[in-house]
């Protein structure tokens, strides 16, 4: 029994030591990059905000940003995310107080390169500007958004993600 235990411990110890060293290396690199990664993420959110409400200032509430221009609240910006064709689509949406979309800016997505990724291009996202929430559907579903050829699922996903989240925020702020 003693021999067997010795053998097992002899195998386990090197693996444990390697795990401890790896853990330490990972902790160190996580601490090193943490601030930088947070700054990158925050910068991306700020960029999105200034694209959909240019010139506005923002105050963050529980799950949306309130956009104000010269002291008056003009609308809300919020992050909407959901499942795309492959992976999660995360997008910043701006909405005026009357329920009209001011703009949509994709923060991250992992759709098919060259096809689904075109949902992030201005040619597609500009279609959302000035549309009412209930009209944010593809043309085939009675809406006013033109789908991207060859990327119907991605187009469908993004319109659903935007509309559903916008409806929730609209109800919250009413």
């Amino acid at each position: 029994m003693g021999e067997e235990l010795k053998r097992i411990v002899g195998i386990a110890i090197p693996l444990i030591i390697i795990c401890i060293i790896s853990g330490a290396a990972l902790t160190a690199s996580y601490d090193l990059t943490k601030g930088r990664i947070e700054a990158v993420e925050q910068q991306r959110i700020n960029e999105s905000l200034s694209i959909i409400f240019p010139g506005a200032s923002f105050t963050e509430t529980d799950d949306y940003y309130s956009a104000t221009v010269s002291g008056e609240e003009i609308g809300y910006a919020f992050i909407a995310e959901g499942k795309g064709y492959s992976g999660t689509i995360k997008t910043m949406v701006g909405m005026y107080k009357n329920g009209t979309i001011s703009g949509v800016n994709i923060i991250s997505q992992s759709e098919t390169p060259g096809l689904g990724t075109r949902i992030a291009e201005p040619d597609f996202t500009n279609q959302f500007s000035g549309k009412r929430i209930e009209d944010v559907r593809l043309r085939g579903d009675g809406g006013v958004i033109d789908a991207i050829t060859g990327a119907t699922i991605s187009s469908h996903a993004i319109t659903d993600i935007v509309r559903e989240r916008a409806e929730v925020v609209m109800n919250e702020t009413r």
Binding site: A25, L26, S29, Y30, L32, T33, R36, I37, V40
Partner: peptide, 10 residues
């Protein structure tokens, strides 16, 4: 993971 973190930041 180290490459992933570095790339995410830089």
């Amino acid at each position: 993971t180290i490459v992933d973190l570095l790339m995410h930041g830089y």
